[in-house]
Nucleic acid binder design. Structure first.
Lengths: 229, 229
DNA sequence: ATTACTAGCAAGCGAGTAT
DNA sequence: TATACTCGCTTGCTAGTAA
């Protein structure tokens, strides 16, 4: 699942399921992992129970369960306990990480369709021009390409890219609000997506800016399909 | 924690705790997230219960609990249910991801101390020379720098780097075993760590190879402290 | 001090079934 | 068919306390 393991170092042979069986014990495992993935952890059931907001007895029981499941090596003395995570536990955490990564950071390609704007794109790009150039590193063609986008996928896309903020300003006696955008590539053309604060568009339409006139350069018409990266 | 959120897109205002409260429900949340982070999920409690190996009634109860906690929007009909994750749920998953990343992929710097080898490094580097050059992209100085390493941190380091395998071979009437290694930098010198299959070293000593004689180049003596990256 | 057993109690599960 | 309520039973918790 994208995570390489070095079995000769970790001595991992087989890892059963992505998350550890009974779920509350998982919190204890995470707590221990935080204290030291490969190191010996010395503590007491009382202090752990405080951290995990449960009872001393429960921590004691959980520790023994984790040990029974082969997730930790456990030694208890009359001054506390001492434990280390086993390769199985580390593998289990890695699987959990891989699973979450898989869910949260997938495919960064978004399909869109060219639509007609109401023509105000040009006006705004001209007003924001200097600031856009500074923010995105290119002088945008004065006009925007309006794209109808599959919103769920755009959200995914956004989660993996850095947002760029363009501060608002006053000019010609009126206020221009802040706007957020992010670098993106339409086909092979590097440009940026803009998310104006207030917009007259329906929610699933975004504006794309680029150094050149994209409709001409890429021979785009309304309903042309494009891919954002 | 390293994950940027775009509140204007996700409408996240405050996210309470990294993992969702009662832990078994977490499995359901993950299941739903896999089916679609931002999309509407249509299913039935019976089919989900099969996937999660629990009862139909339990899935029904869990769904209502997740909805009560504001983690999902839930609508039930007499043909099944329909749900979407809320920003709070996505934030919760992101926190979980960040937490695991934090635990499993931290600091990739390892301190080590120069120690004396038994002198066999030169012999082996000379025998493996061509293969090492092919594997790592540089012609190693015929000799190894032996480093005493903090093993837990080395394991961490290994988890984030790609392992390179050098196949074994026969030469001069004897067998030379396969060995694993990985690219690493000692100070500013690019080289590689070697993990021979069988070694006469204690477990916390590794061998470092580089294009030049490091002891001379970096004026290293026994007990000199070095940093691996 | 500790860990951890016992026992009584609370929470959670799921078969039956209402809606 | 669905969802979801009831209720008997199991699982798991924690106070008391032994070791």
């Amino acid at each position: 699942m994208g995570i390489t393991r070095y079995s000769f170092l970790l001595n991992v042979t087989y890892i059963s399921n992505p998350f550890i069986p009974q779920a509350m014990k998982r919190d204890l495992l995470l707590y221990l992992a935080k204290r030291g993935l490969f190191e010996e952890i010395n503590s007491t059931t009382a202090s752990v129970s405080k951290a995990l907001k449960t009872s001393q007895q429960t921590v004691s029981r959980w520790l023994r369960i984790l040990a029974d499941q082969g997730l930790i090596e456990l030694e208890t003395t009359n001054t506390g306990f001492s434990t280390t995570l086993t390769p199985k536990a580390i593998g289990s955490l890695q699987d959990g990480l891989a699973e979450l990564k898989d869910i949260l950071q997938p495919k960064t390609e978004v399909k869109g369709k060219v639509v007609s704007g109401v023509g105000e794109g040009r006006y705004y790009v001209e007003r924001y021009m200097d600031r856009l150039e500074k923010a995105f590193g290119f002088k945008p063609y004065p006009g925007t390409l309006n794209l109808k986008i599959d919103m769920p996928r755009l959200r995914m896309f956004c989660m993996n890219e850095r947002m760029v903020r363009v501060q608002g300003f006053k000019k010609e006696g009126r206020e221009f609000g802040a706007l957020d955008g992010m670098h993106a590539q339409l086909g092979n053309v590097k440009g940026a997506i803009l998310f104006p604060k207030r917009t007259s568009h329906p929610e699933d339409i975004i504006e794309f800016i680029a150094p050149n006139n994209l409709r001409r350069q890429l021979k785009l018409k309304d309903n042309s399909e494009v891919k954002l990266r």
